[in-house]
Simulated assay, not measured.
Amino acid sequence: MEALSLSTLIVALAEIGDKTQLLALLLAARFRKPWPIIFGILLATVANHALAAAIGAWVSSQFSPEVLRWTLGLSFFAIAAWTLVPDSMDEEDAGWYRHGAFVATLVLFFLAEIGDKTQVATVALAAQFSDTLMVIAGTTLGMLLANVPVVLLGHFAADRLPLNIIRAVAACLFVAMGLYVLLD
């Protein structure tokens, strides 16, 4: 349960104000069809985070516990710093809109998550916890917790969230995880 709950909390907070949350807002405004967008987010996240978790599990099997501990601890510190930087959207993604809400969401979310802080966090969490399925479930749930309200409520929710405070809380959680790993 620790892998599930921690993965959910970390990704949900890190995702607020992230480019994929902005993408969810744009898709919701563009298509006004929340369910295909939500299903696209779900499938794209499961696929992307399963790949990330597999990489994390592989990495944990390739290094000694000491090297892994320092790498993970420092990775969480780097993700904490990265969390404090607001994301923006690329205009080149608009070409996928012609394929409909589900396909556009599926492809754009999968691509937007490549190298994103939540994907890197998934790699680190999977390297830390042996239960990769719980990590995938937790990071996916965290993505949904952050993005589904944006899809359903549009500008109403996004405009009223204190993004700087949420980014700071998420960064503190990543620093805490880094300290936990290093001091464990």
Rank of each mutant, 00 (worst) to 15 (best):
A121H: 08
L161P: 05
A146S: 11
A101V: 00
F156M: 08
A127E: 00
N147I: 05
L161A: 00
K33I: 08
A124H: 02
N164P: 13
A24Y: 07
E91R: 04
P149G: 02
A44T: 04
V11I: 10
G100K: 01
E113K: 09
P36V: 07
V46Q: 00
A94C: 02
E2R: 11
A168D: 06
D90G: 01
G56V: 03
T139M: 03
R167T: 13
A52P: 14
G100F: 04
W70V: 14
W58S: 13
M1N: 13
A137H: 08
L108I: 07
D87G: 08
V135G: 04
E15T: 12
L106P: 13
G178N: 05
A94F: 13
Q62S: 10
F77E: 08
V103F: 00
A158F: 12
I37H: 05
V181R: 04
L26W: 03
L84F: 09
R98S: 11
Q119Y: 15
C172Y: 08
H99T: 04
L9G: 15
M177F: 11
D18L: 04
T122M: 05
D159V: 05
A47P: 14
A146R: 08
D87W: 01
R32G: 06
V148K: 04
G138R: 11
F77V: 14
V11A: 01
L68H: 07
I136T: 13
L27Y: 00
I136Y: 08
H49P: 06
G17Y: 09
I37F: 01
W58L: 11
V175S: 11
A112M: 10
A158I: 14
F174H: 15
T71P: 09
L125W: 14
A57D: 12
D131W: 13
T20Q: 09
T122R: 05
A57I: 03
